[in-house]
Amino acid sequence: MFEARLANGNIFKMIVESIRELVVDVNIDCSTEELSIQCMDSAHVALVSMSLSQSAFDHFRCDRSLSLGLNLPNVSKIFKMMGRDDTMVLKAEDSADKLMLMFENDKSGTIADFELKLMAIEAEQLGVPDTAYKCSISMPSSEFQRIVRDLQVMGDTCKISCTKEGLKFSATGQIGTGNILMRQNVASEKEEDHVTIDMEEPVELNFALRYLNFFTKATPLSPTVILKMSPGLPIVIEYPIEQLGHVKYYLAPKMEE
């Protein structure tokens, strides 16, 4: 039996929103420690890894590890009916052929419940090693969202380069070139406004802007985003969820042959 109660159900709704433009069918893996997701987009260019610790939940019981196979467009439709302050309860039997979702609101006294049929989803899992990256940048997630949105008018590809100078986003297209440079900035009192750049060696990689924009759907989950890069490796774009988990996106670079 699996049973989990999340006082701030909105966190789960935001997690669904953060991946639903990348993947259609997804397995949510439940274990005694956490809920987790690993999935790729249909072109296998991007990988999403989500983790939400059992400590995020007010109540968490998982007798036996199981995978909940969900169709995200359907899940998203159900979450549209969840109120902002609702508590969410998830329940599934060990057979995992259906998922019960409940949205409760003490103030209004409403309880909405849904039963969702689950699917058996065959998905390739990748072994993602825990690597030390050459560059690690922490910046406000809203700034990152604005930059990758704005650069779309210039071209399809974004060159991200981390040097002594700072972190530079560049896009080139028919109308010309745009560059946005972020310098290290720790002047603000609010830590979430800081830009910190930790660079062991300069790195420059090219990425599809379309995907970078998909990833910014996770912006409501976290005030900061962490970018990690090493030469010739997929970039990691991490949105920490308080101390309770994360949504991480990995994006394969475009490489010169």
Binding site: M40, A43, H44, V45, A46, L47, E124, Q125, L126, G127, V128, P129, T157, N206, A208, L233, P234, Y250, A252, P253, K254, M255, E256, E257
Partner: peptide
């Protein structure tokens, strides 16, 4: 134009 690589070129399928 640089071609797009895929995730499985970097990480092993389990």
């Amino acid at each position: 134009k640089a071609p797009q690589t895929r995730m499985d070129a970097f990480f092993a399928v389990q």
